[in-house]
Simulated scan of single mutants.
Amino acid sequence: MPDTLTPACAATRDWVEGFVVAHNVCPFARRELVNDSIRFVEVSAAQWEPALQALVEECRRLDDTPQIETTLMLLRPGLEDFDDYLDFLDVAEALLIEQGYEGVYQLASFHPDYCFDGAEQDDPANFSNRSPWPMLHLLREAGLEHALAHYPDPEAIPERNIERMRQLGSERLAAELAALRGQ
């Protein structure tokens, strides 16, 4: 997208390319990266109300800009604590429904401390949803459905990711994530 990227957004773009695409965590990310159809935006989440308003504005931007397929909304500062992030995510999902976007847009969640429900914190599988910063991934439902319809065995993606992350191991994955975050 033609917007100038903040340093955190540029690092997140590097994460998409150097981690998500490199490890094929999302088999559809490469196409969107090559097509320059991913919007990266940084929003302060120190106060939830303006951050939630920014989410609604991103939905409206997607409504008005069909060449943007997806938005990665970095939420910094404000949601460094994973439990706070999950609370925010619940409110954000309810807001999308309230605003009439259910079935139009979907939220995927990423956080540096992401931990799947019931998983151990150090399980490498968590890295499939770990990112340099807390973020919401706003996806077009229609685009996602189209991509999944043309992908063999899409139901196997999560299991394949878990297996791949466990093969790579927590130490390597943590080092890669820290390097992409500039630590």
Rank of each mutant, 00 (worst) to 15 (best):
V104D: 06
M73A: 01
R172F: 06
E57S: 13
L136V: 03
P158I: 07
R140L: 07
Q99A: 10
T6I: 10
E159Y: 04
H146C: 03
E93V: 01
F40Y: 15
S128T: 15
S37N: 08
A51N: 08
N35K: 07
P7G: 09
E102K: 07
G143S: 14
Q106N: 06
L148K: 06
A46Q: 15
R140K: 11
F40P: 08
R30C: 01
E102F: 04
T71R: 02
G78I: 08
G18M: 02
H137C: 15
S128Q: 15
E176K: 04
H146G: 07
E58T: 05
L89S: 12
D81R: 11
N126H: 09
A179K: 04
R39H: 13
L75I: 09
R60G: 05
D36S: 14
R76C: 09
S37V: 06
E32S: 12
A51E: 09
L74M: 13
V20I: 15
G169E: 06
G143F: 10
P50Q: 12
A8H: 08
C59V: 00
E120W: 01
A29T: 05
E120S: 10
A179G: 08
D84W: 02
C59S: 04
G118T: 00
L177V: 10
D123F: 04
D14N: 11
R181A: 15
A51Y: 05
S44K: 04
D36V: 00
D81V: 08
E159I: 05
L79W: 00
R39C: 12
E176Y: 07
D113V: 01
F40Q: 07
A178E: 13
Y85R: 01
C115V: 13
D84A: 12
R164A: 10
L168D: 04
F19W: 09
A179M: 08
E145S: 11
A29Y: 11
P7S: 09
V25H: 03
E58S: 14
L62R: 04
F116D: 00
L95M: 12
L55E: 08
R166V: 09
R60P: 01
V34F: 03
W48L: 08
V20K: 03
T12P: 14
H137A: 14
S37I: 06
A178K: 15
A174D: 09
L5H: 00
S109K: 05
E159S: 12
E102L: 13
A45V: 05
S44N: 05
L33G: 06
P27L: 02
I162S: 05
P27S: 07
H111D: 05
L75H: 10
N35W: 00
D153K: 06
L79P: 05
L139D: 05
R160N: 13
D83R: 07
